[in-house]
Amino acid sequence: MTLLLDELSVSIDGAAIVEDLTLAVEKGQVVGLIGPNGSGKTTALRCVYRALRPAGGAVRVDGADLTRVPLRDSARMIAALTQEDGADLDFTVEEIVALGRAPHLRGNQALSARERELCRQAMSRMEVAHLAHRGVLSLSGGERRRVLVARALVQEPRFLILDEPTNHLDLHHQIRLLAMLRDTGMSVLVTLHDLNLAASACDRLTVLSRGRLVAAGPPREVLTEALLRDVFGVEASVVPHPLTGVPQVLYDLGSATSSTEGTPA
């Protein structure tokens, strides 16, 4: 099963935020979407999980236009972790995680034994099982982030859409989360600002600048010193990781150059 952003374009208040973006996520692939602030990454993802409707092009699952798929059906296929993870009601952690089963249930249908076990496994995987009876509003930002990832896993989607999933996470949980993404075998589209984590976690990287795709391919091909200079406005060295060989970016704090980025997203 393939997720395809097919010449996707989005305009907001007359401003073009994403223009003619085409990228594919194949079965079992982890694809990273990277780029400067305001490059259109979050806007593109919002079209995938149907918070926005594109002005042009389409999001397709195995060729079918996602806008023609019933919302319940698309919610069974696609789970999303957004940057806005606030909660107004103080549900417990286990209640929040169980909400991931909502697309699969009808009315007030109770969770089956299998679904309850699925919730327990997801909480354990994200190291939040000990918080099961805590109110979500009492959690730290990192704890809440992990709870929401567990909820997405419980949804059993075919595609997992993650917008800056490592926000608020400490180093241990950043590495654990990204390693888990590779181990699940799910198809993943993820935005990341940490380019070294992106290079380690993703099979392919796609780079947005001013709403347009400027590079795509394996991390070894995409992360170059010229791209860092041209797209991110940073002079940096790219070296192979001593154990894995994946590219790693070495920064000099005095290396930032004047940036021309400025389009909001």
Rank of each mutant, 00 (worst) to 15 (best):
L192T: 09
A201I: 01
R220E: 14
F232Y: 15
E235F: 01
L195D: 07
L160R: 07
S187L: 02
S209Q: 13
E221I: 03
L169R: 01
L192K: 06
L195R: 05
V149K: 04
T191C: 07
G233P: 04
V207Q: 14
R146W: 01
T206W: 01
Q121L: 12
A152Y: 00
P247F: 03
H172K: 12
V231H: 02
L208R: 09
L243I: 03
S187V: 01
G185W: 00
I175L: 13
L243G: 05
A198L: 04
L118V: 11
E127N: 12
L118M: 01
S237D: 15
L148H: 04
A236T: 02
T244P: 06
D203M: 02
V128T: 11
S237H: 13
R182G: 15
L177Q: 05
V222M: 06
H241D: 15
G211L: 07
V239M: 09
T224N: 07
V154Y: 02
L223W: 00
V234H: 02
G185T: 01
M126W: 00
V154N: 10
V246I: 03
A199C: 09
M126K: 08
M126A: 11
Q248D: 07
G135H: 09
V246G: 12
V214K: 05
R176K: 13
M123N: 06
V149Q: 01
L118I: 07
Y251C: 15
C119T: 13
R146P: 14
L195T: 07
A201M: 06
P240I: 00
L197D: 06
M180N: 10
V231D: 12
R125Y: 00
R145Y: 02
L131K: 08
D170A: 13
R145H: 01
L118D: 15
E143K: 08
G141T: 09
D183C: 02
D170F: 06
Q155E: 07
A132H: 11
L171I: 13
P219G: 09
L227F: 06
E164N: 10
T166W: 00
G142T: 10
A122E: 06
R220K: 10
